[in-house]
Design a protein around this nucleic acid. Structure first.
Length: 927
RNA sequence: GGGCCCAUAGCUCAGCGGGAGAGCGCCGCCUUUGCAAGGCGGAGGCCCUGGGUUCAAAUCCCAGUGGGUCCA
């Protein structure tokens, strides 16, 4: 086992006369030009730049960003445009971009794909939700920030096959990285003697390496990471996460310079927020009516300087820390808190609005899943803060202030989304409020506190925070039992570890890996369906079929939501049906019902009709999503797709349900594109060029690996896509939207058909309409009107029948009919058999009871059924009587004492049962 | 991707195996100088859809649809 100590023995440190020292407070090892007590990072030291800027000139955010980027441009770094904050658009292991290196994981860092430039510099917007509780309070934490960075991607040359990686050789490594850092500080006018480089090995995402934290005047301004190791159980280095790591073939300079911190350092304002969004803070303060006296200003100012110590993760007890700070400033804790709280909220609002602007601007749609859920949480939290602190500007306006500053072009959509979402939240709160009030009333009556179980239910199922329950309950004078570990209780309720989805294993993976790459003929000519090939290998499958590998193929393997081709492979002797085609690595495997024979020449024939339909649907998918973007907005993005031969579906991100009008508009636009008969073209450009030219919207269906990517262009629409397409849009024939459904909040599924399938789908719909029209005996276009009339009449008749039944019952009750009267003690019972349904029996019984008599009615209409009803004041339990009667017909029954129903399957025994009724009545009445 | 909750009158909801209810709103009449309010009467329900269990389902079970919510 060895540690990384020697990794920090840089020539640069020696040349510049740095000393390695140990922090007297935290014990960390650090390097600096002059001897010092501590490492200089809070809590070992305090901020030393507030009111005392650490740089020569005050910079705005924009100026600082430009200063950084041009500094590195002058030193041969290429400036790269930032990536979206929604990192799940290019990788599936994370939701949000949390660092600049995220842009290059995993394909670039692993050496599979070349970086867009090498070396490069960038200022990458990032969002870190884990800092959410610190925002506003510590004076330095923001949820949204820009990580300025320079990166260099190096690959070792002393390995067997240096060319296996997408980049070769060393650009630069540790010494240069630290030197750049020093030079940047120097250029900004910092005092180099005050800079501290702390040794702080880095671990994350399966990689690790030595790293350096750069501290200046109490603030961590940069982190220099030298990513050079990967997780390896046999590795020689054990890192702080307890895992072992070994060196890897690529090694990468990964730096992070916090734009906000640098801006703050240049201004020396009490908090980072005032340096970063001075206008918005001023607006919010003014709007919330916050005005401070000079003395109050002094307190806030002093407290802000010391607030650096507060970090919910690090300070052991944030309240204790507040006590200390208050004492040092010379005020009561309560007074300080009262003064600080609204300011903290305002800082948080500004930051959260920026977070929202990033999220929504980059196309995240609020939802109950994924990044959309995070956006919803941030928005709701922000709304609560805004209301709490008394800012009365609409939230969409506040978010727009940031969106404008960030130069987003889709500001109208962003505002629309915020408005929609605020309204949804209001409805949730309304619903929740009613629910809680009702519950509070209930427990107020019982005189009990609202139990934890109810609280968990309210939160988990209805999204009502416990503090809201407490507030409302207090109005009703009910206490609430909120346990300290409330969120743990909620988490427990979810329980269960998710079962990992098992990847289907290829039984002969090793042998497949040795086979050469299959030549993909379907890309050379997408319209051709015949080809010849040599059988390279045949595997016997467990199910009796055969997996056939060819040197080249026209068969499209399943991928990108497009099902595999089918068809035949034939030799002179054998004709094998191809039922499935899959791709494993670079090798395409055809599953066949017969063995064509290894080494044989085969003629391949792809099922042309099937292929044609799949291609029509695939190209139509591109057209529909393009049309949907035109109609619904630029935020529309593919969230999944499946093509078929009869229909296809795409799931798109959108924040409200799609109206019938919008559906028609999308359909019309799509068919315009079809009628324009535009050529559908494919090309294989360099991926970085393609990204630069078209941006990230290329990747609607996932991100492909490799140096070249395949682009499909349909008019204005360009997408990275591996599927097969028709030659011209006119080949699609027609596009028909069949259905829209909301599969989750923020995701709409559009189902549609193309070509003949569109005609067939239309015919099915028309068949249904025609059939309905035939039944109603009207013309198809009169169906809605007629159906409405019929429905109205049907309801009117129902009511009429109801009334007639009541009249009939009254008539029967007074007219006698074939009824029998029996004395039961003081009372008289009317026994009657009328073969009618339950409704009629009930009406009849009511009529008899109104005359003061007991009703015992039987019906043989559907099995045997009884209704027994007893007037007020007569001591006979109807339920018991029915129970006895029903026993005779093999069933059961019951009900309240004054009205009971029952029955049984044996209708033949009905009359016998009624004959026994007098005796049953007398027994039950006990007379 | 997973968990939980909900669907009954125009609105908000109660009922949770036996007769479909309340409050608000609506219509009419009464009281009142008028308004606010009050009294009396009335209209208004495919109890989300489809299966199942049961003598009997708004109610229990299953599936679907629509909505809400929490978590990863």
């Amino acid at each position: 086992m060895s540690d990384l100590d020697e990794a920090y023995q840089l020539d640069y440190f020696e040349e510049e006369g740095f000393h390695r020292q140990e922090c007297a407070s935290c014990g960390d090892m650090f390097w600096s030009r002059v001897e010092r007590e501590t490492c200089g990072e809070p809590p070992c030291a305090e901020y030393d730049f507030i009111d005392n800027p650490g740089f020569d000139e005050s910079h705005s955010l924009t100026e600082m960003r430009e200063a950084f980027l041009s500094f590195f441009e002058e030193r041969d770094h290429e400036r790269i445009e930032p990536y979206p904050v929604a990192a799940n658009r290019w990788r599936d292991d994370v939701l949000l971009t949390q660092a600049s290196i995220y842009d290059f994981q995993p394909l670039v860092t692993s050496g599979t794909t070349p970086p867009p430039a090498n070396p490069l510099c960038i200022s990458q917007p990032c969002i870190r939700m884990q800092d959410i509780d610190n925002v506003g309070k510590t004076g330095r934490h923001t949820m949204a920030f820009e990580m300025m960075a320079h990166h260099a991607f190096n690959a070792r040359e002393d390995i067997e096959d240096p060319e296996q990686y997408a980049y070769e050789g060393e650009v630069y490594w540790k010494d240069e990285t630290v030197r750049y850092c020093d030079e940047l500080f120097e250029e900004m006018g910092a005092n180099l003697d005050e800079i501290v480089y702390i040794e702080d090995p880095w671990v994350g995402g399966g990689n690790a390496g030595p790293a350096i934290e750069v501290i200046y005047r109490g603030a961590e301004l940069a982190t220099l990471v030298f990513m050079s190791m990967e997780q390896d159980p046999d590795g020689e280095y054990e890192m702080k996460d307890g895992n072992r790591y070994s060196p890897m073939d690529t090694y990468i300079v990964d730096t992070g310079y916090g734009l906000e911190r640098w801006t703050w350092m240049s201004q020396g304002t009490p908090t980072v927020y005032e340096a970063v969004y001075p206008d918005m803070i001023a607006f919010l303060k003014d709007n919330a009516g916050i005005e401070l006296t000079d003395e109050e200003e002094r307190i806030v100012h002093e407290a802000a300087k010391l607030a650096g110590r507060m970090d919910i993760d690090e300070a052991e007890d944030i309240e204790a820390e507040r006590d200390t700070i208050a004492a040092e400033v010379g005020v009561e804790v309560a007074e300080m808190r009262e003064l600080m709280a609204p300011l903290e909220d305002i800082y948080a609002i500004a930051d959260h609005c920026r977070t929202l602007a990033y999220m929504l601007g980059d196309g995240i749609v609020p939802s109950n899943v994924g990044t959309g859920y995070l956006a919803r949480m941030v928005l709701r939290r922000t709304k609560r803060l805004v209301d709490g602190v008394g800012v009365d500007a609409p939230l969409d306006e506040l978010v727009d202030m940031q969106a404008e500053r960030l130069d987003y072009e889709n500001r109208d959509t962003i505002r629309d989304i915020v408005r929609t979402e605020v309204e949804k939240y209001r409805e949730t709160l309304d619903r929740g409020g009613r629910r809680v009030r009702q519950l509070a009333d209930e427990y107020a009556e019982k005189g009990e506190p609202i139990p934890t179980a109810e609280l968990v239910e309210l939160y988990d199922s209805h999204g009502i925070q416990p503090d809201m329950v407490e507030e409302i309950a207090a109005e009703k004078g009910v206490s609430v039992d909120v346990p300290d570990d409330f969120y743990a209780v909620v988490a427990q309720r979810h329980g269960g570890d998710d079962t990992a989805t098992e990847e289907s294993q290829m039984p002969y993976e090793d042998r497949l890996a040795e086979l050469p790459e299959t030549d993909r003929l379907y890309y050379e000519d997408q319209q051709r369906t015949e080809f010849e090939a040599v059988v390279l290998e045949v595997f016997d499958r467990d199910d009796g079929d055969f997996d056939v590998v060819l040197d080249q193929t026209m068969f499209y393997p399943e991928g990108g939501g497009q099902p595999p081709d089918q068809g035949t492979l034939s030799t002179d002797d054998v004709s094998a049906e191809v039922t499935d085609v899959q791709q494993y690595g670079d090798v395409i495997v055809h599953t066949c019902d017969d063995d064509p024979g290894k080494g044989e020449f085969v003629r391949g024939q792809v099922d042309a009709t099937r292929r044609q339909r799949l291609m029509q649907h695939h190209t139509a998918t591109h057209i529909v999503i393009h049309s949907a973007r035109q109609v619904l907005g630029e935020h529309v993005r593919q969230a999944g797709a499946q093509k078929g031969t009869d229909s296809a579906r795409i799931d798109i991100s959108h924040y409200e349900s799609v109206s019938r009008e919008e559906v028609k508009e999308i359909e019309r636009l799509a068919n315009d594109i079809v009628q324009d008969n535009i050529a559908v073209t494919q090309e294989w450009p360099d991926r970085n060029e393609a990204e630069e030219r078209y941006g990230f919207d290329l990747y609607q269906g996932g991100i492909p690996a490799g140096e070249q990517i395949r682009l499909i262009t349909v008019g204005d629409d360009v997408q990275a896509c591996g599927g097969t397409h028709v030659a011209r849009t006119g080949d699609i024939g027609a596009v028909k939207l069949l259905n829209t459904e909301r599969i989750q909040d923020g995701v709409i599924r559009l189902t549609f058909a193309a070509g003949n399938a569109a005609i067939e789908a239309t015919q099915r719909t028309e068949d249904a309409l025609t059939e309905a029209a035939d039944i109603l005996d009207v013309a198809p276009d009169a169906v809605p009107e007629t159906a409405e009339r019929f429905f109205d009449e049907w309801k009117a008749r129902g009511k009429e029948i109801e009334q007639l039944k009541e009249q009939l019952a009254e008539a029967r009750a007074s007219g006698g009919g074939d009824s029998e009267k029996v004395d039961v003690g003081e009372a008289t019972a009317v026994l009657q058999r009328i073969d009618a349904d339950m409704d009629e029996l009930r009406a009849q019984a009511n009529a008899i009871v109104e005359q003061g008599n007991i009703a015992v009615l039987g019906s043989g209409l559907d099995g045997a059924q009884f209704v027994v009803s007893v007037p007020d004041g007569v001591d006979v339990d109807a339920g018991e009587v029915v129970g006895e009667l029903a026993g005779h017909v093999g069933g059961g029954g019951g009900g309240p004492p004054d009205f009971a129903q029952g029955g049984g399957p044996d209708a033949d025994a009905l009359d016998d049962a009624l004959d026994d009724a007098p005796e049953i009545l007398r027994t039950v009445a006990n007379v």
